[in-house]
Design a protein around this nucleic acid. Sequence first.
DNA 1: TTAATGAGAAACCGTTCGGTTGCAAATATA
DNA 2: TATATTTGCAACCGAACGGTTTCTCATTAA
Lengths: 106, 106
Amino acid sequence: MRRDVFQAIADPTRRAIIMLLTVGAMTPNAIADHFESSRQAVSKHLKILTECEILSQEQKGREIHYHLNADKMKDIEKWLEQFKQLMAKRFDQLDIVLEQLKSKRK
Amino acid sequence: MRRDVFQAIADPTRRAIIMLLTVGAMTPNAIADHFESSRQAVSKHLKILTECEILSQEQKGREIHYHLNADKMKDIEKWLEQFKQLMAKRFDQLDIVLEQLKSKRK
DNA sequence: TTAATGAGAAACCGTTCGGTTGCAAATATA
DNA sequence: TATATTTGCAACCGAACGGTTTCTCATTAA
């Protein structure tokens, strides 16, 4: 069972939950109220998000407050950054090629 | 069948293919050479990546060159940016938000 | 012209996903 | 104490996923 940030944000409902929890911690019922999905369906999403450490639980009596761990989102940012760097390198090489073409023309 | 950028990058092999193609266009066989997976398995990933417009095909004789459409990656960047803005807002207006939540719960 | 190569398509297989239903445990309320 | 609420968990279901095998169809090379 793969359980990483990329797999976590693949689902639109989970992306919406993440966005919702930027506002602050919430209970499963409160979260489910914001969606068409049933409480149990939302609960499954919460489990997945917790397992890959995007969310953390805080028990308060019979309620559980789900907190967002914004730091985990940096994994995606890192990957994107890596991608952009590779792309930049590619264009650097392109520049070199274009320079060579220019000087050849002379 | 959901087919968006987020679902596309959920698979580690597909993320690797994206990284590989930053260097330049490649044929399915050339791409498959870089992985443990079979040509057919890679071909399926290429199909998915093409369907959500991360890749584009260019026929050259019996070969097909797969090009990267780096622009599509901006969808992820946009989402991340949106997320970060919400987080910033959270810290700016934490008090206001908490007040709103209080009254909403009633 | 015949053989080899590059590639997609279809059929199949086991696993995972997202969802529902039903249940049990803990806490709060009457 | 009896009841209601909040929640997680397990079993089940249909669909999608990732992969393999086999097949077909172009295109290129001998």
